[in-house]
Design a protein around this nucleic acid. Structure first.
Length: 148
DNA sequence: CTTCTAACA
DNA sequence: TGTTAGAA
């Protein structure tokens, strides 16, 4: 067993958390007109509530809206913001994968929080730690203690 | 009151 | 993109 899932166990499906267009509009500060337009362009996606024909957005798309808005404010064009958003999401997926497998636990070394990043060598004899000191991080390879 | 579509003084 | 009208 290893990885983030053991430290931050979550069984919730965050995409079950949905928001109406007005809520997204207020949260991210974009107009409902923009949200409908972005969806029409295929930049974001919504699901239609069964009975009503109202749009609802899941967390994944709320994240997209947030990123597109960010890049627009940075001065990018809508299409540029869309491209940048998808690239960012791709990177975020890689970061999650990395963290899920590399991150082991937060321990203590020299009285400081030390992030156990897993085995440093192929033979699994030493472990890489990222020791947190205020804003800085000191990396250190520590010989693994022999287990009985 | 909120959301939808369509259209443009 | 904003706004507005009329309907749901």
């Amino acid at each position: 067993m290893s990885g983030l899932k053991n430290v931050f166990p979550h069984k919730m499906d965050l995409n079950q958390l949905i928001f109406k267009i007005g809520e997204v509009s207020k949260m991210v500060n974009v107009s409902t007109r923009q949200l409908r337009y972005w969806e029409q362009k295929g930049y974001i996606e919504s699901i239609r509530d069964d009975n009503s024909s109202s749009r609802v957005f899941n967390m994944e798309n709320l994240n997209r809206v947030n990123l597109i808005k960010y890049y627009l404010d940075e001065g990018m064009t809508l299409n540029g913001a869309h491209v940048a958003t998808e690239e960012k999401i791709a990177k975020m997926r890689q970061i999650r994968l990395f963290m899920m497998h590399a991150f082991q636990d937060v321990e203590t070394i020299d009285g400081k929080p030390a992030v156990n990043l897993g085995y440093f060598d192929k033979n699994k004899e030493s472990i890489l730690y990222g020791i947190i000191d205020e804003q800085d991080i000191e990396y250190r390879v520590v010989e693994k203690k022999e287990e009985k």
